[in-house]
Design a protein around this nucleic acid. Structure first.
Length: 494
RNA sequence: GGCCUCUUCGUCUAAUGGUUAGGACAGCGGCUUUUCAAGCCGUUAACAGGGGUUCAAUUCCCCUAGAGGCUACCA
């Protein structure tokens, strides 16, 4: 018998930006789909009109594209990068366009007596909840409309009375969720609310829409955050009411703020776009997020997407939430920044260097010099700022080595200046040969490295801490280097 | 409050019915060295607590505690 084709979907709501926790789910979706040669689908869950944000779907697609995570089915971006398209046999892939389909299934549930019309006003509901809270009762719908005669209810609906549709959940017994990560989880029916599945505006809620669509689209694995576990019984109920095969559910552990609450906007960045904009590389984000809550039982830290695809295994996903650890993310990004193609790196960093500096080679040398010091490309702006200044401010540090006098420092700088002047241009391109050249001359002079190199380095940087003078010389080039030395000498003699 | 889930170094995690409980990030120390970064080497640091089961429990079971999630006509 042929194996059923593995199909997973990313199902974001177009509410503005892509949440970093959602991205992890999509990564797992993708890995699982790729691993089995299955499908990875993008479906937009826009059933909540009030939260809809114009342009959010396009934005979502763009972000996915930037990450190199492109679904092979569902919503996608046309060549122009702006127009939304849909592809695949199971469309439409935008839930609001499936409204009629959802309503049809709601009607079926109504017909099967698995759902009922509810005419309770929001005011009544709010009052009820208030009372329940005040008397320390469990909150939830009191079933007011559950017992309404169906014929009567239909008449009211036909008369145009505003209403919703609620699930008619069992009031006794229990249900077991078989979760791929957590195993079997038991819930008592009597504690579960008769959930609204069709809102007053006729739009289905997540609970109906997502189940219907997952079934229609032949989704085999539903990966979602742990916050959904509590409502899983309602979802199972819908599947069972229709006699559908229940997909594999996997409730992923949450990504957490440093205080262990659900990762939220309040406590820092949660939008994937902003990480991308800051210069975190796609491979960094994917590598890092994949390892947040899952681990292939290895000591390796760096994984390509191919390796992740090969190794990923749902049953090895952790059960407990993981704090989003920015320091490790930085370390990883630094790693990938150093490992990536040089030209790509230069392109990435260039936009963080002064626009009005027209010497492209100069900027390129600077970019390479600071390469292993960057967590994100924008770090270079501050690190390299002194290199673009017309004059340096030496006030914050000292140009003289330990107890050396001004005269000694000047002597060394002027001598080194001559050495540098004599280095020919081809040699001036290599840090190592500049270093050998100058160091051997220091030895010949009988000077020390410290008393010569410190003033030189400070002359070139104006800073306590900086790359070595040899790196600086190469980055500056001869002319700029000599000018800096002159500048420092003049400052000392002032 | 109720229901559900979770609990190994500060953080992400590995492993196991018998181990010196492993790795990574961060920290600390050293090497290198003109400073810094990088690199290399080393090092501090964890089985939430209490009961069982067992010759043996971090591992299996129960309880407690703590944390988190849900408790919407949001997803």
């Amino acid at each position: 018998m042929a194996q059923k084709r593995i199909r997973l979907r990313a199902a974001p709501s177009p509410t503005g930006y892509m949440h970093i926790g959602n991205l992890r789910t999509y990564i797992y979706d993708l890995l699982l789909a790729k691993q089995t040669g299955g499908d990875f689908i993008l479906r937009i869950e826009d059933t909540d009109q009030s939260r809809f944000v114009e342009g959010a779907t396009v934005n979502l697609c763009k972000t996915l594209k930037r990450l190199g995570i492109v679904p092979n089915e569902g919503v996608w971006l046309a060549e122009d990068g702006e127009t939304l398209m849909q592809r695949g046999e199971f469309g439409p892939y935008i839930q609001s366009e499936r409204k009629a389909k959802h309503q049809k299934y709601a009607q079926k549930l109504l017909d099967m007596d698995k759902a009922y019309y509810c005419f309770c006003t929001e005011d009544r509901l709010a009052e009820m909840r208030k009372l329940q809270e005040a008397t320390h009762q469990p909150t939830g719908y009191d079933g007011h409309c559950r017992k309404l005669d169906i014929g009567e209810a239909k008449k009211r609906v036909e008369a145009g009375e505003s209403h919703v549709v609620r699930l008619k959940l069992p009031k006794e017994g229990s249900v077991v969720i078989d979760d791929a990560i957590r195993g079997k989880v038991n819930f008592d029916w009597k504690l579960i609310d008769d959930q609204v599945i069709v809102k007053q505006d006729g739009m289905a809620t997540y609970h109906l829409a997502s189940m219907v669509d997952d079934h229609d689209m032949e989704i085999t694995h539903v990966l979602r955050g742990e916050e959904w576990l509590s409502s899983a019984p309602k979802h199972i109920f819908i599947y069972q009411a229709f006699g559908w095969e229940v997909p594999i559910f996997a409730h992923l552990p949450l990504l957490l703020n440093p205080d262990r609450t659900k990762l939220s906007k309040r406590q820092g960045d949660v939008s994937v776009e902003s990480y991308l904009d800051k210069g975190y590389l796609p491979q960094t984000l994917i590598n890092f997020l994949a390892l947040c809550g899952w681990n292939p039982s290895d000591k390796q830290e760096i994984y390509s997407i191919e390796e992740l695809t090969r190794l990923f295994n749902l049953s090895k996903v952790n059960k407990s939430g993981a704090i989003f650890n920015l320091e490790k993310l930085n370390w990883l990004n630094n790693h990938y920044l150093r490992e990536m193609d040089v030209n790509d790196y230069l392109k990435l960093v260039d936009m963080h260097l002064p626009r009005d500096e027209k010497d492209v080679d100069f900027k390129g040398r600077i970019a390479l010099m600071f390469r292993d010091r960057l967590n994100v490309p924008s770090d270079i702006t501050e690190l390299s700022s002194f290199m673009f200044k017309s004059t340096l401010d030496y006030a914050a540090t000292t140009l003289t080595w330990k107890d050396h006098s001004v005269e000694e420092a000047v002597e060394r700088m002027e001598t080194v200046r001559q050495w540098i002047e004599q280095i020919d241009d081809s040699k001036l391109k290599e840090v190592k040969s500049v270093e050998e050249d100058i160091k051997s001359k220091i030895v010949d002079k009988g000077w020390g490295n410290g008393d010569t190199l410190w003033p030189l380095r400070v002359a070139l940087s104006g800073q306590d801490k900086s790359p070595s003078p040899f790196e600086l010389i190469v980055a500056y080039g001869k002319e700029r280097t000599l000018a800096r030395i002159d500048e420092a000498v003049a400052y000392l003699l002032k």
